[in-house]
Design a protein around this nucleic acid. Structure first.
Length: 504
RNA sequence: GGGCCUAUAGCUCAGUCGGUAGAGCAGCGGCCUUUUAAGCCGUUGGUCGCAGGUUCGAGUCCUGCUGGGCCCA
């Protein structure tokens, strides 16, 4: 931390405060009311005109961070902020007892104070505290970003999120919304009879998804461990064990690139319900997401950049092939013919179109033609089996599986299956994945023998799903980047590690 | 991995054709007892991301590197 003129000046003020005999770092704030509570109760100017406020004879103590100071000779106005709410403090030399008035010269933006006084309304009608006494709670030694523009530099906003939160009120609102959303999801799931469980984040065999894992090492056991890419295989073991409905909201880790939609660690909710299938998962998903929009965000239609998304249930349903046909402008019957699929894939320069199976190419074609255009909530169904090693096949067509992915705002938001519960079939699918891996696909799934063993003890028909919480929050808060809904997104360290410099 | 953009005062940003580095906010010193991005007067503050190069002269042009943003694969 480089000393600068601001810090020096504020250290000097700190010294003066101490010289006045004040405790600048008290252990507790003097506080009778929350700042937001006062604004909520007395903020309505029509209901609480100045005479009525003054008539209350109420003395309040509120704490807050000083955001602005307007000095006017022998009176001073300051806005205090707490939890995103603001309240004005009004100091008059005649009202404030010594050493309070003297102390005002030592007050800076960013400081925490508690003010004690009566409620009033100024000439312009703003609710204010007419201050009789000031208590210092904390002296800020460094200045806050500019009061009008806030902190704009994205790098600094992500690296020093605390400054972003203090100086950009809408950022605090977004993260408060995130907390309310996650809390509402938990209530919803519990009301649906699901129990929240916790399964390993460090796994000896990373399973449940196709992705590259982070690897770490356990010293005492001298073994490799992987940060989980999904909790799926553990949650299913719990269904085998007799849980009827379980869910888990927690972090997954995938060792892949960063983008506006990807952070290496991200939050996922996965849930499983015995006796249910894909239709049940769809119904629950619609109820959950449309309910969040309506009840938590207070709107059925929420803006998404230049567009607007309607979260009213029911969501549209479309098969993968129909989506390719509709959004790619491709004749539907071509998608029933493997050779035609290959030709279509080559036409849009999909890699390895000669060697991939038709099912894999259908997945590629969907991604290329349709995914980004699925702005309104849409369930895509009937996925090729090659892309879905943990999913039951469709009745009457074992090339496709009973799976949906939910797309909103051009993003994959959820992924659900009628879970594969035939252990022999499951073993075969794992073997196919192992062959893929042998062929060089390092994202193919690893064989988890204990998981197959669990299925062999009996796994009921089960509906299962994962919902990307970060992306859901992005949508509901109209945030363009996943970094805007993750408090501390991964950033490269500012300077190369010294150890690297010294090596060689 | 490729392409484009970007880095100037604590913060937000200007900086033309290569010719002495600027404004607003913040800070500091004044005036002002109902202000609202308060106002008025004065004023401090710079490793122009880093390293090279071209040039009489580089914030500006060139090369490389680093951080960040966006797009593509």
């Amino acid at each position: 931390m480089q000393p600068n003129q601001y810090r020096d000046v504020r250290l000097e003020k700190l010294g003066k405060l101490k010289a006045l005999g004040l405790d600048v770092w008290p252990r507790k704030a003097k506080r009778t009311h929350g700042l937001a509570e006062l604004v909520a109760t007395y903020g309505d100017a029509a209901a609480w005109p100045n005479e009525k406020l003054e008539g209350l004879g109420l003395t309040v103590s509120v704490m807050g961070r000083v955001l602005t100071i307007r000095e006017m000779g022998k009176s001073v106005f300051a806005h205090l902020s707490e939890n995103g709410e603001k309240l004005q403090a009004f100091f008059r030399k005649d009202d404030v007892a010594e050493p309070g008035w003297e102390v005002l010269n030592l007050l800076d933006m960013g400081d925490f104070v508690s003010v004690t006084g009566s409620l009033m309304r100024t000439r312009t009608g703003e609710l204010s505290v007419r201050v009789k006494a000031v208590q210092f709670l904390s002296k800020a030694l460094l200045p806050l970003p500019e009061k009008w523009h806030g902190l704009q530099d994205k790098e600094q906003r992500y690296r020093q999120r605390y400054l972003d939160l203090v100086s950009n009120p809408e950022v605090l609102k977004t993260f408060q919304a995130r907390s309310r959303i996650v809390s509402a999801i938990r209530r919803f799931m519990e009301d649906e009879g699901y129990l929240e469980v916790e399964t390993p984040m460090m796994q000896p065999i990373p399973g449940g998804a196709t992705a590259r894992p982070f690897i770490t090492h356990h010293n005492a056991l001298d073994m490799a461990l992987y940060l989980r890419i999904a909790p799926e295989l553990y949650l299913k073991r719990l269904i085998v064990g007799g849980f009827e409905k379980v869910f888990e909201i927690n972090r997954n880790f995938r060792n892949e690139g960063l983008s506006v939609r990807h952070n290496p660690e991200f939050t996922m909710m996965e849930f499983y319900a015995a006796g249910q299938d894909l239709r049940d998962m769809m119904a629950l998903t619609e109820g959950l997401i449309s309910g969040l929009a309506r009840d938590i965000m207070g709107a059925e239609i929420i803006p998404w950049g230049e567009q607007a998304i309607s979260y009213a249930a029911p969501f549209r349903r479309l098969t993968l092939k129909d989506a390719i046909a509709e959004y790619g402008g491709i004749e539907r019957r071509l998608l029933e013919d493997d050779a035609a699929i290959r030709t279509l894939a080559k036409a849009v320069h999909i890699e390895d179109a000669d060697t991939k199976t038709a099912g894999v190419l259908l997945g590629d074609l969907f991604e290329h033609h349709a995914e980004k255009q699925l702005i309104q909530p849409t369930f895509i169904t009937d996925y090729p089996i090659e892309l879905s090693p943990l999913t039951k096949t469709l009745e009457g067509d074992d090339r496709f599986v009973d799976r949906f992915e939910l797309f909103i705002g051009g993003m994959e938001l959820a992924n659900a299956y009628s879970e594969l519960n035939d252990p022999v079939d499951q073993m075969g699918r794992f073997q196919a994945q192992m062959a893929e891996r042998e062929a060089g696909n390092d994202e193919a799934m690893l064989l988890d023998l204990d998981f197959v063993n669990a299925l062999e003890h009996g796994f009921p028909p089960t509906g299962g799903e994962g919902i990307g919480i970060d992306r859901l929050v992005m949508l509901l808060t109209n945030s363009a980047s996943i970094r805007d809904v993750i408090l501390f997104p991964l950033m490269r360290p500012m300077k190369p590690a010294e150890s690297e410099e010294k090596e060689g």
